[in-house]
């Protein structure tokens, strides 16, 4: 039951039932403020990823606290740690299982470029197997750096032609 006091909330009498905006803006706003990360915590960076999810840094402030270990439910893969050649196919397969639209953050030097592990066993940058949207430097990056990357990615999402991709079908995609 709605009470008579509607001034505190959205007031339909003042603002009416219509909000005029661009479809892109709405879709991107929704997408960017509820990023569900897939925590690909492979090594040391995974600890900083956990730290950014916890009380002091609180990734929930940016709507990305819903860490999902199932690729089907996540939008953004955070590759946190060294990807070895043995692990690389699994990372790729998990990425393939994620539903569109999807984004990737390469967290830390190892995921971005192989970092200090220039050796026979380490993939020299996760961008060799999956497309990366944001790279974060640091070994490991501080949680603030990860949050910064998240904000950068939100900005990137807000610039995307979401409506055309979503509603325009194949024609728009080929264009």
């Amino acid at each position: 039951m709605v009470t008579s006091n509607t001034d505190l909330a959205y007031n339909t009498k003042i603002e009416d039932t219509l909000v005029v905006t661009k479809a892109d803006a709405v879709i991107n706003w929704l997408r960017s403020s509820s990023i569900w990360p897939m925590p690909m915590g492979l090594a040391c960076c995974g600890i900083e990823l956990m730290a950014s999810g916890n009380s002091r840094f609180d990734i929930a402030r940016f709507g990305a606290e819903v860490m999902r270990f199932s690729p089907r439910q996540s939008d953004c893969m955070i590759v946190a740690g060294t990807v070895t050649y043995k692990m690389a196919p699994h990372v790729r397969r998990i990425y393939d299982q994620m539903a569109e639209p999807k984004w990737v953050i390469a967290m830390g030097a190892c995921a971005s470029s192989g970092g200090m592990y220039r050796s026979y066993a380490t993939l020299q940058g996760v961008d060799r197997i999956i497309p990366v949207d944001v790279y974060v430097s640091g070994c490991p990056p501080r949680p603030e750096a990860l949050l910064d990357a998240l904000i950068k990615m939100q900005e990137k999402i807000r610039r995307q032609p979401a409506a055309r991709e979503l509603l325009g079908g194949a024609k728009a995609k080929s264009a």
Binding site: L42, A43, G81, T82, T84, K86, M87, H90, Y117, R118, S119, Y120, A121, T122
Partner: peptide, 11 residues
């Protein structure tokens, strides 16, 4: 094992 074998001993 080995999904995080980075070659520390060789390094």
């Amino acid at each position: 094992l080995g999904y995080l074998h980075r070659g520390d001993e060789k390094i």
